[in-house]
Design a protein around this nucleic acid. Structure first.
Length: 1047
RNA sequence: GGGCCCGUAGCUUAGCAUGGUCGGAGCGCACGGCUGAUAACCGUGAGGUCACGCGUUCAAAUCGCGUCGGGCCCA
């Protein structure tokens, strides 16, 4: 039996109950296994990093995934949906280091790498478990029992296998390259791991003495004085114009070379008092010009390096137009250096300190601490032209926030740049939502693809499976545990460091092969997710069956992240994209559109939203707030609105239940089929609407327009169901007999609500389940165990009636217009009106909905006029003084007054007949203006296609009804106050002092008794009013005393 | 500095790819109504130079260019 729902919508209670129900009955696994054999839908979860705490963005991300997967599942798809976790990497190392109070890598080494790894692993697992619980609260259904984890052996193998593929295809390369380097973490970090923000640094102009020319200098500018010791060249733009100038500062005279357009600026910076241009030439002329390193005396290694000017296009017309080149400390510098055969001089170690190569004075000093010292040394030697400060964006390590440096180091690269064209071709085969995510943004990023530095000099990560021979330098890449076992002749149990570091292999040359000590960049971990989650290469069948992914969805930051890393790894492995469609979603920002950050204090935790409003509210809010690909400006107010919508849904759902219970409503008996003949037009309307809605949802889901889906659902709940249908259907539920009209209403409500739960299920899974369990499972144990196991509701075309929907739309507009008119006419809805008149230029067809219209406007009659017709208007006339005056002169005022009181209709008639006398004055047509006026008893109001006129004139019958409703309302109010149940009978006494009112009310005695369920009802002028509750009321001008008691 | 996206009433937004009843809605606010969904619900009203400027056009929130502000990514 359906049970009554007493209270208001309590999300917490609903969600707890539903969660418990799902757990106990293993609903999630059932939804997935029951679809085995269905069309496959392979979804790959972008693995969140195990930070331990989900935020609004990750919550939104999982809600999108969940809604789509539930929808797919209900549509019969066999969904593969392993959750994933990104569990390696520096962030966790940093956390563990913090917990252990470590400062550098040396602390880790002395603590013991094995123990450190163990800590990292435990930490990652703990974080994962905490986050799993947080996701579950949101109702996010993924396979949480068997998620893929990047730290698992089978996962490591997938990464190893991929690297082996790269090696086989000659896409793996060892290179000496400039990389972003964190001197604290002592590792290369990916471009993606560099965070930029404003930093104040020195801004110095330095003079490099030109070889063989007295007092002549090349002027360069830099913000990193510490890279000057590594300078080996100066770059000039081949097409810029440069000048040689003689400049004076005090009694000093310098000859300076720089870009012509920048001479003024530079000399102002250097406080030169005057100058003279000696020569102008193009940059090309500078090519090969030799100079002496300014700190040559301090850095012995510099004296054996040749310094000269090189030409390069990357030089910009800023600062001096000459760029200091240190190939050991800059990306462009390095590239130019290699191209021009410069020495790559990098006297800085991994800890950010100068090595011995930097000379006695600098050795062992930390580079960023030494800027001042270098400046002083330059100044001492007379090479400092100007010195200042600048605030500019500088890169930092994303985890420990240390300013990064660029150093040249040996690293391992994946030669992704070679695959650029193939990648561009592949992304065209991928369906992108929105389209520009692929066609513009991603394409743009891929066009700039650079080789991918995959090695990291750290501990907690997938070890590079690369072994190198000490003797012959032979490189071998191992692709699986099995292969490694075979190769080293022992059973390997742990693929992580440090165990794997111990394994040595025999080289065919007779030498010993040792593993490269590096681990993978974490981005490489998640890059192989689409096959690692299928346990490829261990399990080939699964891969054949599922790969590539049908769908992935992540935030727009993943353009350069996971969308890209996956594509790169997959191109290396399989030569094709690992996904078929991608939905790119936005970020969650605060209400002002600013990024949420701890420092701004504007962070909203998903958990807080759930606590205040429930998971369904949070879900529905994030889904409906914008298009998925736009950023959400989080607004508590809108969250509250969403909650209100669910509350209205809840009220609409529980409203008919008490009546259904009373009548022992059984949906199997009282169904649409049986009561087809008794359906009212409004019943057919709501059934049409809910099926139209289903069709709309399907249309929008096709292109992942989740906002349109959820907004359509909201609209239906608020407008169609609550504000309209429920209002229409209410009186029918009060009928006490087994009336077919009532049964038809029940059947309609039931069908509509059950359909609605299915349509809501993917988006608000808890409330949908709760309603479904009560309405369906409580009466039919044979029905699907959960709404999420139901098949999706495909629109039933036979129930859709577009014409009826359009008619109803007109009716609603007319009702609104009537409300408007009533308000202006001072006639409240409780008082009936005799008729309303609808006037329109077009045909207005209410076919069948007249009763609805009459009911909702509380009128006795609806009159629809022929197109273009208006109701008879009152005629008013205005005398026209400027015409009357000249004719009647002194009598003019008399004429005007007489006209004002004359009957306009008569006047018009007379004028039409050509003879009109007013107070014995002859009137001509130009002396009066006729105006059409809405008769006094009518009030008009416009609606979209016309005007409605409401007749507000009162008659005794109308008044009687009006007063009766006043009395009824007050008795009902008192019943409520006494906490009487709907079906309870009462005995009532009504005393009315006003004779007229009394007479009117007495005429309605039977009606009143019926409406308030009174066994006995007395209405008199004077009597002693008794009852359990007695109250005095004032209605209009009458005093009414009412007493009631339980019958 | 570059690429992509966004900028509509106090707030959240629809409409912009196919320019012409498109300036709509919800919240909030003010006023009123309902009182058998009632710590609910309904109606009415005030509020916008559609970020700004220039252009294309008979016509621009809608197309183009530029500026400003926000976001993601890059340099």
């Amino acid at each position: 039996m359906i049970s009554e729902v007493a209270g208001q919508y309590d999300a917490k209670e609903v969600e707890n109950q539903v969660n418990e129900f799902w757990d106990k009955n293993e609903i999630y696994p059932k939804t997935r296994t029951m679809r085995i054999g269905g069309k496959k839908f392979f979804f790959v979860d972008g693995p969140p990093y195990t930070t331990g705490m989900i935020h609004l963005g990750t919550a939104w991300n999982k809600v999108i995934k969940d809604a789509i997967l539930r929808y797919r599942s209900m549509n019969g798809f066999h969904v593969k949906d392993r959750a994933g976790w990104d569990m390696h990497g520096l962030p966790i190392e940093v956390k563990v280091e913090e917990a252990l109070n470590f400062k550098s890598k040396k602390d880790i080494e002395s603590y013991g790498v094995d123990k450190f790894i163990q800590k990292c692993m435990e930490f990652a697992h703990r974080q994962k478990d905490a986050m799993t619980d947080q996701f579950k609260i949101l109702g996010a259904w993924l396979d949480w029992e068997e998620p893929y984890m990047t730290l698992k052996d089978e996962y490591l193998e997938a990464a190893w296998w991929t690297l082996k593929r790269a090696h086989e295809r000659d896409l793996l390369e060892r290179g000496f390259r400039v990389v972003n380097w964190c001197p604290r973490c002592e590792t290369a970090i990916a471009d993606a791991e560099v965070e930029y923000w404003e930093e104040t640094d020195p801004s110095i102009y330095v003079k490099f003495p030109v070889v063989g020319e007295e007092k002549t200098y090349l002027v360069i500018w830099t913000t990193t004085p510490w890279t000057i010791p590594a300078n080996v060249g100066v770059a000039a733009h081949p097409e810029f114009e440069y000048s040689k100038v003689r400049a004076w500062k005090g009694d000093r005279e310098d000859i300076l070379i720089m870009a012509t357009s920048l001479v003024d600026n530079v000399l102002r910076e250097g406080r030169y008092r005057d100058y003279q241009i000696l020569d102008k030439f193009s940059g090309e002329a500078l090519d090969g010009l030799g100079y002496v390193h300014p700190l040559e005396d301090l850095i012995p290694a510099q004296s054996s390096i040749e310094h000269k000017v090189h030409l390069a296009d990357f030089v910009t017309a800023e600062n001096t137009g000459l760029v200091h080149v240190a190939p050991g400390h800059g990306m462009e510098d390095f590239e130019l250096g290699v191209e021009r055969g410069m020495t790559v001089f990098c006297p800085v170690g991994g800890d950010g300190r100068y090595t011995e190569e930097a000379g006695e004075k600098y050795v062992g000093k930390y580079v960023r601490d030494i800027n001042d010292e270098v400046n002083i040394d330059l100044a001492d030697r007379g090479f400092m032209l100007a010195e200042g400060k600048i605030s500019h964006r500088y890169g930092h390590c994303w985890r420990c926030k240390t300013p990064i440096i660029y150093i040249a180091t040996p690293q391992w690269f994946l030669k992704i740049a070679d695959l650029r064209d193939d990648m561009l071709k592949e992304i065209e085969n991928v369906k992108w939502y929105p389209d520009w995510a692929g066609s513009s943004r991603f394409k743009d990023w891929v066009e700039g693809a650079r080789d991918w530095c995959i090695s990291r000099q750290r501990y907690w990560g997938i070890p590079l499976p690369i072994w190198i021979c000490n003797d012959c330098g032979q490189v071998e890449v191992i692709g699986s545990i099995e292969e490694l076992d075979e190769r080293c002749g022992q059973k390997i149990v742990d693929l992580h460091r440090p165990a794997v570091d111990e394994i040595v292999l025999d080289c065919p040359c007779g030498g010993t092969m040792r593993r490269v000590p590096d681990v993978f960049d974490v981005w490489f971990d998640s890059a192989v997710a689409s096959w690692a989650t299928l346990n490829y290469p261990r399990d080939k069948d699964e891969f054949e069956e599922w790969w590539p992914a049908d769908f992935i969805t992540e935030g727009h930051d993943q353009t350069r992240g996971w969308f890209y890393s996956q594509l790169g790894a997959s191109m290396v492995s399989f030569g094709q994209a690992p996904y078929k469609s991608v939905l790119m979603h936005g970020f969650t920002l605060d209400d002002k559109g600013k990024k949420m950050s701890k420092s701004l204090g504007n962070v909203v935790q998903p958990e807080e939203v759930v606590r205040k409003f429930g998971a369904d509210t949070l879900r529905f809010y994030v889904l409906s707030s914008n298009a998925p690909w736009e950023d959400i400006h989080f607004s508590w107010e809108e969250v509250a609105n969403t909650n209100r919508m669910l509350n209205i849904l809840w009220n609409a759902y529980r409203f008919p239940l008490p009546y259904m219970l009373l009548d022992e409503f059984d949906p199997a008996e009282t169904n649409l089929e049986r009561y087809k003949e008794h359906l009212r037009p409004e019943d057919r309307w709501i059934l049409s609407r809910v099926n139209t809605l289903a069709g709309e949802i399907d249309g929008h889901m096709e292109t992942y327009q989740l906002h349109r889906v959820t907004r359509a659902l909201s609209e239906f709940v608020m407008e169609d169901l609550s504000r309209w249908y429920i209002q229409l259907v209410r009186p029918r539920t009060w009928i006490e007999t087994a009336d077919p009209d009532k049964q038809a209403a029940y059947a309609t409500i039931y069908e509509t609500m059950v359909t609605l739960t299915k349509l809501l299920a993917p988006f608000a899974p808890f409330i949908a389940e709760s309603i479904y369990q009560n309405l369906v499972r409580n009466v039919d144990p044979g029905a699907s165990e959960s709404v999420h196991m139901c098949d999706w509701h495909n629109p039933r075309d036979e129930l859709v009636d577009e014409i009826l929907e359009a008619k109803m739309k007109t009716v609603r507009e007319v009702v609104e217009a009537v409300s408007n008119a009533r308000q202006r006419g001072g006639r409240k809805l409780r008082w009936p009106v005799s008729k309303i008149i609808i006037s329109s230029a077009e045909e207005v067809d209410l076919g069948g909905l007249e009763k609805v219209l009459m009911g909702q406007t509380n009128c006795k009659k609806v009159e629809v006029l022929e197109p273009g017709q208006k109701p008879p208007m009152d005629l008013a006339l205005n005398p026209v003084p400027r015409k009357i005056g000249p004719i009647f002169k002194g009598d003019a005022q008399k004429v005007i007054q007489a006209l004002k009181v004359a009957d306009p209709v008569q006047v018009k008639k007379d004028l039409d007949q050509g003879r009109c006398m007013i107070a014995s004055f002859p009137i001509t047509p130009e002396m009066v203006e006729f105006l059409e006026q809405v008769p006094e008893n009518l009030v008009d109001a416009a609606f979209s296609s016309g005007t409605v006129y409401v007749d507000i004139a009162l008659t005794d019958d109308l008044e009687a009804e009006g007063y009766a409703r006043e009395v009824i309302r007050r008795v009902q109010d008192m019943r409520k106050e006494m906490d009487l149940r709907v079906e309870d009978k009462i005995i009532a006494m009504v005393e009315i002092d006003n004779e007229d009112v009394l007479n009117l009310v007495q005429r309605m005695e039977d009606h009143i008794a019926n409406e308030v369920r009174a066994e006995r009802l007395e209405i008199k002028k004077s009597m002693e009013v008794q009852g359990a509750l007695v109250k005095d009321w004032t209605v209009e001008d009458a005093c009414i005393r009412i007493g009631i008691r339980h019958g």
